[in-house]
Simulated scan of single mutants.
Amino acid sequence: MKIKIFLITNFLTINLILSQAPIDITEQTIKVKAVSEEVLYFGFEEGDQIIFNISEINGKEIKEVEIMEFPSSSKFSDFKTSKIENKIINVNSKAVYKFRFYNSSLGGRICKIKIQRIPTNENLKDFNTTVKWVTEQDTTWNSYTKDVIVRYESKTDQKTRKELVRVDTIFNQFFDKILRVHSETAFGKSQYTTASVELPVNSYFPDKINPYKTVEVISWSYWIGVGQKSEEEYENANKRLTSGISTVGSLTGNSALASLAITGISLFRNVNIGDNVHYKFYGIQNGKEIIIDYGNVISASGRKDNITQGLFAVQLYNDNFKDGINVNIKMVAVQIQKTWEEISYYEKIEIPIYEKQIFNEPIISTRKFPVTFDYKK
């Protein structure tokens, strides 16, 4: 009877030992770089026992060793260790386990790792511990309220706009003088005569920023003549102007000068009989003298559009030894007068009508995770 009991006991012990023989999952040497981590993933069956061994071959410490059931259930962790022997972890349900090795030092760590499993019975010894990675998308919905145009309503508004309603051309004779210029031998007199000229000032009503009426000089012309023959030619030029007067406009006795101011075409002929005069039109700009025009003539005419505002001087010089001269100077400016008015008009506008509506917007997130090799969705 004792012999039978002994045999039965030995048989059960041998059977138990055989059923608990560990199965190697991995045995490898890994290098954990400075300030980094290495991670291994393996799958385990329910009831498995995990046997874990690690040693740093140089005996140096590893900052952290952790074993967790994926995704975040920590089963074991150790800090500042150089060796762990035969650590056993019981697996309560089929799952993927994560083996994490973290090195916080500035030098690498070389670790020998051995991971084994002991299945609960012989039928589970061939369980595949390889993991596979699965990518899944999850969709959630974000509800929000938005104002949406549902229709339009028409409306007519009365508005005003500023419009240019009139443009007029004005001829302004701003200088008309006969100047006496003495001879070289005139006692106590100068051979030079100077006169000041001011161009018509531009005007803006009510102001320059937003005017409703403006008068601006765009160009001006002059005629200068010495003696009776020059004056006769001036009158003849006015008489020859028989066409274009209605377009150009005219000044009494100065239509040829007005025509020159606006068209740039002179109808005056040169006079060769009479005394001459040296003339110079000049002004001061930025502290320096600028010459507008000059000449030595019996009569002359010209047009200017580069200087239209300000003051300038007319200087006359008589090179005659004994006779003084009378110099006739006439100037005409072309001014453009513009007039604006507020004009009323009607404008049809479409007014959008809104209402609040609820919208659902999909939010798609993608996640990738490890599963056991026999995982089925």
Rank of each mutant, 00 (worst) to 15 (best):
I5V: 14
P22A: 10
P22I: 11
I23R: 06
T26C: 10
T29Q: 12
I30D: 01
I30E: 04
S36H: 10
E37Y: 15
L40R: 06
F44K: 02
E45T: 08
G47T: 10
N53V: 12
S55Q: 08
N58W: 10
K60M: 12
E64C: 13
V65F: 02
V65M: 02
M68Y: 08
E69N: 13
F70Q: 00
P71H: 05
T81D: 03
S82H: 14
I88W: 12
S93R: 14
K94I: 08
K94T: 09
K94N: 01
A95Y: 00
V96C: 01
F99N: 03
F101E: 08
F101H: 03
S105P: 10
C111N: 06
Q116T: 09
T120S: 04
N121F: 06
N121M: 12
N121H: 13
E122F: 15
D126P: 01
D126M: 14
T129A: 05
T129L: 07
V134A: 06
T140I: 15
N142Y: 15
T145I: 14
V150S: 08
S154D: 12
K155A: 11
T160R: 14
K162H: 10
L164T: 10
D168K: 00
F171N: 05
Q173K: 08
L179N: 03
R180H: 11
T185M: 13
K189L: 12
S190L: 06
Q191K: 15
P200K: 01
N210G: 10
K213F: 09
V215M: 05
V217T: 09
I218M: 00
S219T: 02
S219V: 03
S219E: 00
W220T: 03
W223C: 02
G225Q: 00
Q228C: 08
K229I: 04
E233V: 07
E233I: 01
Y234E: 07
E235W: 13
A237P: 04
R240T: 11
R240K: 14
L241P: 02
T242V: 00
G244K: 02
I245P: 02
T247H: 05
V248S: 07
S250G: 13
G253P: 05
S259Y: 07
I262D: 07
G264S: 04
G264C: 03
R269W: 13
G274F: 02
G274D: 00
H278K: 12
Y279G: 01
G283V: 06
E289Q: 15
I290H: 07
I291V: 15
N296R: 07
N296Q: 06
V297M: 04
I298F: 06
I298P: 02
I298L: 09
S299N: 14
S299Y: 04
S299D: 05
A300I: 09
S301A: 11
D305P: 07
D305I: 13
N306L: 14
N306M: 08
T308K: 12
G310M: 00
L311F: 14
L311M: 14
F312C: 00
N318R: 13
D319M: 06
K322M: 11
I325H: 03
I329Q: 01
A333C: 04
Q337V: 14
T339E: 09
E341W: 11
E342W: 14
K348D: 08
P352K: 13
I353H: 06
Q357Y: 15
Q357T: 15
I358C: 02
P362C: 10
I363M: 08
S365L: 03
K368D: 05
